[in-house]
């Protein structure tokens, strides 16, 4: 057993981190929230070049193969840098389309190369909304045994996180029907849930890092506020919560990669833990920043706003916990 990322996986994380640091993602998020997708699309292309969208596309369709561990590594970095867009959705859609086989796979090379952005309504979820359908090239909807490509979408329903642009897909044409659609959608939902858990973990890490930096600098009563136990203990709890979530996410990815055991259960456990961890990180970050944290201006807000929706997206806490206890 060697339950640690290998050198190549760590290097992949480092290179994505460097790429995203240089990309000034806060500006990209703010543009995206205002409906300007151009900087986001440009970044999407660079992420594709780095291999992010090939991680759920088989090599025969110009991808890198199905690599859940690397996918989890990548999504943690995407979360750390608050990258906007239907990232989870595109990766999950690739799994869905690949699962259906034959002509549906013609979309895959475009997904891997970053040319095609896909979104979908999270299958098996209650949500009627698809994320960023207003900019996606393809909007998929699974209902029971039927897969449709939506013909149009409702107007954007503003989310509390303005970078998440939700709309209701409607109409369109039937792409596939039958029990194989349901099976492929379940697999896609697992991948989407895992990617969301990894993303939440990354969002939590940045919330903690930024807050630690803040409380070391911010002085009150003549001392850094980070020297007060009330602050220290809250931040220690956030670190503990994140550090005990990370191995659940890694193990869930391994379980999905090996197709042995009950990967759905492992993924649900990771998602429930990540949802709690990111939520705690956001609440703590806000409290430790005081009024400053309650502002739109401070970039911290971009991560605080992400935390709440990610806790619920692709599997609510209740649904995930129920799944953990399902035999």
């Amino acid at each position: 057993m060697r339950f640690l990322l290998d050198d190549e996986q760590r290097e992949f994380a480092r290179s994505l981190d460097a790429l995203l640091k240089a990309a000034d993602t806060p500006a990209v998020v703010r543009a995206w929230s205002a409906g300007d997708h151009n900087p986001g699309r440009a970044l999407w292309g660079r992420l594709a070049e780095a291999g992010v969208f090939g991680l759920s596309v088989p090599e025969e369709h110009d991808g890198l193969g199905f690599l859940p561990v690397e996918l989890a590594v990548a999504f943690t970095e995407l979360g750390r840098h608050a990258v906007p867009g239907p990232l989870v959705e595109t990766v999950a859609a690739a799994v869905l389309l690949d699962g259906l086989g034959d002509r549906h796979t013609t979309w895959l090379p475009g997904i891997a190369s970053g040319k095609t952005v896909v979104t979908l309504r999270p299958p098996g979820d209650d949500s009627p909304y698809a994320l960023d359908a207003d900019m996606a090239d393809l909007v998929l909807v699974v209902t029971g045994d039927t897969l449709r490509a939506a013909g149009s979408t409702s107007s954007v329903q503003p989310s509390a996180d303005p970078a998440r642009r939700l709309s209701r897909p409607t109409g369109g044409t039937v792409l596939a029907e039958g029990p194989h659609v349901r099976r492929a959608a379940e697999h896609a939902a697992d991948v989407g849930r895992l990617a969301t858990a990894a993303q939440a973990l990354g969002v939590g890490r940045t919330l903690l890092d930024r807050t630690v930096a803040h409380v070391r600098e911010r002085h009150q009563f003549g001392r850094p506020v980070g020297s007060f136990q009330a602050i220290k203990h809250r931040l220690a709890d956030v670190l503990i919560s994140l550090e005990f979530t990370a191995p659940l996410v890694r193990a869930a990815a391994l379980s999905l990669a090996s197709a042995a055991g009950d990967s759905g259960r492992d993924i649900a456990a990771a998602k429930a833990a990540a949802g709690d961890a990111v939520h705690l990180a956001a609440r703590t970050a806000l409290q430790c920043h005081g009024a400053l944290g309650y502002t739109d201006e401070l970039d911290l807000s971009l991560w605080i706003r992400k935390a709440r929706p990610l806790r619920t997206a692709w599997g609510t806490p209740t649904a995930c916990r129920a799944r953990v206890l399902t035999n």
Partner: peptide
């Protein structure tokens, strides 16, 4: 379901602790 959630959290927590320790053992090795 409130009780069910707490049972699930115990299962998740125990698994997290086990995995965290496997990672620590891997680092020691």
């Amino acid at each position: 379901t409130a009780l069910r959630d707490r049972v699930a959290d115990a299962v998740i927590g125990a698994r997290a602790y086990q995995l965290f320790t496997y990672a620590g053992a891997s680092r020691l090795a």
